[in-house]
Design a protein around this nucleic acid. Structure first.
Lengths: 342, 342
DNA sequence: GCGGCCGATGTAAACGTTTTCATAAATTCG
DNA sequence: CGAATTTATGAAAACGTTTACATCGGCCGC
């Protein structure tokens, strides 16, 4: 396959001139440029990007390391990342399933020379010093980080604020005995959502310690199990705030099995606003987070870091999490001919 | 940052030896190897992957070009691709939103020297000759292709078979007036599903031309609109086969608004088995496709092409699409009635 | 007519690897 | 004991670009 030398030969110029034409430096004579382009087209010349980045030390690509790819959450992150990157003519080098320190370290290492920076979402099991070691080689933007890392930008979700809003809403509807299905302790999102829940209660003069709190692993089955425990308590709580929608779905199942009507017998609020939420019966009131925006923001921050002439200190950004009121909390009248739960 | 030369100097050997140690060629003396590794660790040496691929002409990466990233379908494809690639220690260079010929061509071009092959899913708007031009430079595996391309592998979904199974099922349940909400003409998936529908009718002695068929764009709103038209017809069809689940959901909405009971007044079958399907009320009978497997297969085929010593002709594979019976078709409620095939 | 400048182009040295070939030392063997 | 073989290592040429620097006309102003 033709390389730059072949094009130069065919056009009767030096390789420097060919290079100049392709990087549209304006120092090339119009006629010469035309000749070069013609020759390039004739031998179907494609520049080799590896060689390019070797000399320029720029790749026009970002690495993306995620703990997993399953489900809407990651899908939307990637979509946001891709969209913004594409807009800036950057490529995305994707790698997922990074559970431990070595995984992350090796994946980052394997990207050296292929990316200009790393967008990193690490599970709790990854330690700050791995991130620090990688940071020595590459700019980093952390997604929803569990710790602040020196020299790394970060984009996070306002878990605390969202949980606070959800809980306040239930309180304002008159509920005073509100249970929570929390996420695993140690998980940043889980902990922040729990704090938001507790603060809201406290501000209403209630004791968070007396609020029934079950812990789950963010999956539907855990929500179901936690729901059974909560619904067995007497007096039964009148409302439940679940740390995510999947567990809320599990809870709805448990409630349905016991013949409870939602929201009349039990008000339910979730978190995430996954697509299913609006199709549930009744549609789930939940906290909506702009995950797509999270991805976009991460790339925007990365671009600012990479393309900035001056090395300004990296940003820390928090995206809002807003309550979306549907029917499962009881704030709205049911509309239409929705079939009643059994 | 340290390069191979620095390591060589620190270890008191030549760069060739360092390279040999890292590519674990067994020709290096044990002591020397130890010294090299120590030196490499001391100066935190990371090999530059761009330089590596420039000399070896191998990248250990595949490019993935998709028309879009929105929704579970693409998410699962990517997950499958990533999982299999990671297993083989390959990276994934992702790029989406490729609408037209130039987009695809330029994206492919920008990957030269960074990938060993391309996994390509093109919308109908991309022409075979663009694929052929790209194929000259890079091995290609097509996902669900609308045309056969010389020298390209392909992995497709058995749209025809799935649609045939869905329609046959409705016929066996006793329905004789079955409408279809089809996808846009020209779209491969849409066309194949429609053919499957028609063949099933024909085999039951019915005239496909007389079956009410509305066309939608695979989105929920289109399903709703098509549903209104279909339900307005007299006599009203007793069953509808929707070319995908999103449109089936739109149809269910339309039916609900008219006070129809599913499946008693109207049986509904979808296609895709998206996550929501099982959470609908009633749970949607649909055609399940292993999208994750589609991604995995594509990579497996790519690996076979790239790592094979002999250039065997590329494969063509079709993944099964199987009917998943839930409640929206009425088969489960009428167990007694379904025993006798007509 | 000449120094200086400018615009267009070429020469060659990087960038950081792998790998072929050469070489030196150590080992085997008849 | 010397020739043949093996083992371990180094020197240097690739790979395909970009870019600093050199070169060379032509043109300007004086």
């Amino acid at each position: 396959m033709a390389n730059i030398r072949d094009v130069a030969r065919a056009a009767g110029v030096s390789i420097a001139t060919v290079s100049r034409v392709f990087n549209n430096l304006e120092l090339v004579n119009g006629d010469t440029a035309r000749r070069v382009l013609q020759a390039a087209a004739a031998c179907d010349y494609w520049p080799n990007e590896a060689a390019k980045s070797l000399t320029t030390n720029r790749c026009n690509a970002f690495g993306v390391l995620l703990p997993d790819l399953y489900g809407e959450f990651y899908s939307e992150i990637i979509r946001g990342i891709d969209q913004r990157a594409r807009q800036a003519r950057y490529q995305i080098l994707l790698s997922s399933s990074h559970a431990n320190n070595d995984d992350v370290f090796n994946a980052a290492r394997a990207m050296l020379g292929r990316v200009d920076g790393l967008i990193l979402m690490t599970p709790d099991t990854v330690s700050p010093d791995v991130v620090a070691r990688v940071r020595k080689r590459l700019p980093i933007v952390l997604l929803n980080p569990s710790f602040a890392a020196d020299g790394c930008g970060s984009v996070a979700i306002d878990n605390y604020g969202g949980a606070y809003a959800a809980t306040s809403h239930l309180l304002q509807l008159g509920h005073r005995d509100i249970a929570m299905i929390a996420g695993p302790a140690g998980n940043v999102d889980a902990d922040d959502r729990r704090r938001g829940f507790q603060t809201a209660l406290r501000e209403f003069g209630l004791d968070p310690a007396r609020a029934e709190t079950e812990v789950g692993d963010f999956r539907e089955a855990a929500g179901h199990a936690a729901g059974l425990t909560i619904l067995a308590r007497r007096p039964r709580p009148t409302a439940v705030f679940a740390a995510n929608d999947s567990m809320a779905i599990g809870l709805l199942g448990a409630a349905r099995e016991q013949g409870l009507r939602i929201p009349d017998d039990l008000a339910v609020v979730g978190f995430d606003d996954i697509t299913i939420a609006r199709y549930l019966n009744p549609p789930l009131t939940t906290v909506t987070v702009d995950i797509f925006g999270l991805g976009r923001k991460a790339v925007a921050m990365m671009l600012a870091t990479v393309e900035a002439a001056d090395a300004h200190s990296p940003d820390r950004e928090v995206l809002p999490a807003v309550l979306t009121v549907r029917e499962s909390c009881g704030a709205k009248r049911r509309v239409g001919l929705t079939q009643s739960p059994r």
